[in-house]
Design a protein around this nucleic acid. Structure first.
Length: 510
RNA sequence: GGCCCGUUGGUCAAUCGGUUAAGACGCCUCCCUUUCACGGAGGAAUGAGGGGUUCGAUUCCCCUACGGGCUACCA
């Protein structure tokens, strides 16, 4: 048995933002390839000129880069099996389609869109709500099977618009082995004569995927489960073109479903339920509309791919946190789930929180600097490096670093006096007023000395320190969160501390 | 409608004929902490239904139900 070298491909079409499911398909392809020391190829399926969206291809590349999914061959970087953009391969497809016609496995069809529409109307019935261009119907249409060869020749020389359709055999079972689902078989009676080459000379997905997988020597083809119904067409094409022995192994991935209700997760669900569906922000070049992505929302790519990998796969150990290289090491197709998984944004956030907690300061530093800069807060890297470990366990999203860190740099904008005013009284007011003097006299401004001074003053005032700690926190932070108060006081310095006490005291008096 | 795929707690899921049916998220209780978070200890919560096969089915088979996908000159 000859060992074919492992080559897989992620083949998105550049029609807009890159969906969660798309990234997961890319990821599984990548994990499989790298686990077997194979190649991961990016192939752009831009055969539909109507759906082509400017910038979408570069956006997809950027998403993969952000995720750390590197390509071995792609439109940008090239490779020995290029071009990797189907539009640039246009000229190669027609000859295969015509070869199929010669062999009797395909035919020319001259039906206009209107005629097809009419056909569907005509044959539509209760029993058959969606009539197909199949072995029965093709007898009634305008194609090289029904027209005389002279007329076909004439129409062809007149450059009459036409497509090439596969001629599905009658009553044959097509069986394929799916790495995830095992044997799956279909009756050819159920599948229609798919268009292989479109009127504009571009191939459809069906022809292109087979030709390109063959020419690019793809060994394993991973794609979403939505492709399963058309798989028999592809299998037949591999056979008809005489490449059966080189056909890749198929693997149809389960779908990612809506969290509520049912159905495939879509961009709309994200908008509706308030979470991203795209990997990164996507700006529609026509409308200018921006759709939020995981990256910009504050996800770490490590968390994003980790979460995606666990949606439909696990290593069986119960461990859920994996780095990309561990995923590569552990990945196995056998452990991919068969059933679809509902997307759970809460769990996605948990992954991110875990990754933020576990990340080294250096990893977080540039990202945190960016978040702060976006909020007009300048901070030195040295200071931030000390601050990050103090707050990272409190951040679920990178954007949380802003709220968790802002008060180290600027006085709180809102003071949650409601939390302290119910228990506020004259003696507490007096305490802070007099403690200020004590603080002013502190020569060594450190967490320990501030805390000691606080305790001493509290004792002198006859108030339990615990009752004064929350007020102090509210004064410095503005709300009930953050690291130990005295550490905060130590960091923000004497002047800021005193100023914030004064500001709050003024508010509490009123 | 037809075809195909799927079905373990609310969600992600382990189990590859014999278990008190893991673990995680979320939720609840408690501890730690006079903030928040982290951490720790507990808790509630699962094999769609019906037939087989078997000494024994969550696990294998069939039927039903339910869910999903596909049914374009879109991918």
């Amino acid at each position: 048995m000859t060992e074919k070298s492992i080559r897989v491909r992620f083949a998105p079409s550049p029609t807009g933002g890159l969906h969660l499911g798309g990234v997961r398909t890319a990821l599984f392809n990548y994990l499989f390839a790298k686990h077997h020391n194979g190649k991961f190829i990016l192939r752009v399926e831009d055969t539909d000129q109507n759906r082509f969206v400017e910038g979408a291809e570069q956006y997809i590349v950027s998403c993969l880069e952000w995720c750390g999914i590197t390509t071995d061959e792609s439109p940008n970087t090239g490779g020995e099996f290029g071009p990797y953009r189907q539009s640039e391969r246009k000229s190669r497809y027609r000859k295969y389609a015509e070869e199929l016609i010669e062999k009797g496995f395909a035919y020319y069809a001259f039906d206009t869109p209107a005629e097809l529409e009419k056909m569907r109307e005509q044959y539509k019935s209760e029993a058959n709500p969606s009539p197909q261009y199949d072995s029965k119907i093709r007898e009634k249409m305008n194609n090289s099977l029904t027209l005389s060869s002279a007329e076909v020749q004439e129409r062809l020389t007149n450059k009459e618009p036409h497509v090439i359709r596969i001629k599905m055999p009658a009553s044959t079972d097509v069986t394929l082995h799916d790495m995830i689902r095992g044997e799956v078989s279909f009756s050819t009676d159920q599948v229609d004569d798919k268009v292989l080459l479109k009127g504009d000379g571009m191939p459809t997905y069906h022809l292109a995927v087979v030709v390109d997988d063959y020419e690019m020597k793809i060994s394993h083809a991973f794609r979403g489960e939505e492709w399963l119904p058309s798989a028999p067409v592809h299998v037949l094409l591999w056979e008809y073109l005489g490449w059966k022995n080189e056909m890749p192994q198929w693997a149809h991935l389960p779908l990612i479903l809506k969290p509520d209700g049912q159905g495939k997760l879509s961009k709309r669900d994200g908008d509706r339920l308030g979470f991203p569906v795209f990997a990164m922000d996507w700006t529609d070049p026509k409308t200018g509309e921006i759709t939020k992505g995981f990256k910009e929302l504050g996800f770490l790519p490590e968390a994003f791919i980790n979460m995606l990998a666990m949606l439909g796969w696990n290593d069986g150990s119960g461990e859920e946190i994996f780095k990309l290289n561990s995923l590569v090491e552990k990945f196995s197709v056998e452990r991919i789930h068969k059933g679809g998984a509902k997307f759970d944004f809460e769990k996605a956030k948990w992954f991110n929180h875990e990754w933020i907690k576990r990340s080294k300061t250096d990893r977080l530093l540039p990202l945190v600097e960016k978040v702060l800069a976006e909020n007009k807060i300048q901070a030195s890297s040295a200071l931030l490096s000390e601050l990050i470990p103090m707050v990272q366990e409190r951040c679920v999203l990178l954007s949380d670093f802003h709220t968790q860190l802002a008060y180290f740099f600027i006085d709180p904008i809102t003071i949650d006096t409601d939390s302290i005013s119910p228990k506020w009284n004259e003696s507490k007011h007096d305490f802070f007023n007099s403690w200020k003097t004590g603080l002013e006299g502190l020569t060594d401004w450190s967490t320990a000395t501030i805390e000691q001074s606080f305790k001493d003053a509290a004792e002198q005032a006859g108030i339990k320190p615990g009752e004064l700690q929350l007020p102090f926190r509210i004064m410095l932070v503005g709300a009930k969160f953050g690291p130990p108060v005295f550490e905060i006081a130590a960091r923000i310095g004497k002047a800021s501390t005193l100023r914030r006490i004064d500001n709050s005291l003024a508010l509490l008096k009123a």
